[in-house]
Design a protein around this nucleic acid. Structure first.
Lengths: 153, 153
DNA sequence: TATCTTTGTGTGCACGTGCACGCAACCCGG
DNA sequence: CCGGGTTGCGTGCACGTGCACACAAAGATA
């Protein structure tokens, strides 16, 4: 504890920004995951599946969720299984494809998500408000949009 | 694949920015980790330990690294063990405290880090350049600085 | 129709990581 | 000196996750 604090001053602005991005994402993720797990026994991965299902009013296939979200297809499969064991989601066989299995929130799932989402917003507000103003948030959205754009279509 | 693409338009700007932050951090992390593992057989967690050791010219204790970095203390302990098996770091017993074990890069470790760091910069440049300008990077650094500030000292 | 390729899904396996415990060394008050 | 509390370290254990495989069903081709 005697020696000076570690720092990254020698790095280029780009490297510094990168590390900050990763740090912020990891820290905020941990904070939200902790709040969700503690108050609702819902890991962040479970919550994320429910989030995407909540904005989609039709059943969604695991492969679709795996492609759009940060989770892998196999992970979605397992998470859906766990959520189904709690009665929060249900499996809807596709009428056109016997292989495909749609996943949809049950009514209990919608209620549970609404409560958990309130917790998430609360935790996020605690981390963001009085720290970032609208300009910062707009800048983050702009950066996201630029990074998300594929290099080649 | 028939239904429309999932979107998060219904969320507040703050929520949207949060998801973008997590998305960007996760995606970039995966990209860098992939490049480091493929070209140098160095997982990102190993590289991060070496990064912090490279900016510190004295041996650093695992507890110190665990507190300052994104890695936990126990993880640092294991990573250091793996790096030591490759001869990239060495254990330096503290002269003042028999419990404390300092970790420091060996000469081979410094060379390996230099090569790996070049790969990291290359992967990062590929992801950043022609996408983010100096203003974006400055905005990211500002956001990081604001988020990093402790709510209470 | 019959066969081969492709797509969607679930799961065994290996690995990385967090948590909690045990142990050794340090510190401190008596 | 010495006993109790604290700190630093490593590790067993449980769990989540990625990868690769197996299987079923759909589509393509002859």
């Amino acid at each position: 504890m005697a020696h000076s604090e570690l720092n990254l001053d020698g790095l280029t602005p780009r490297d510094h920004a990168f590390y900050g991005l990763v740090w912020a994402g990891t820290t905020l993720t941990a904070r939200v995951d902790q709040a969700l797990t503690r108050h609702h026994d819902l890991p962040l991965s479970w919550f994320e599946v429910m989030l995407w299902l909540s904005v989609q009013h039709e059943p969604v296939a695991p492969s679709e969720l795996g492609a759009r979200t940060l989770l892998s297809r196999s992970q979605v499969s397992r998470v859906a299984d766990s959520l189904r064991a709690r009665g929060l989601v249900e499996r809807v066989p596709s009428p056109t494809d016997a292989r495909s299995v749609g996943i949809a929130l049950t009514e209990a799932g919608r209620r549970a998500f609404a409560e958990a989402d309130a917790t998430r917003r609360e935790a996020l507000a605690e981390a963001f408000d009085d720290r970032l103003d609208d300009m910062d948030i707009a800048a983050l959205e702009a950066v996201w949009a630029k990074l998300k754009a594929r290099p080649e279509a």
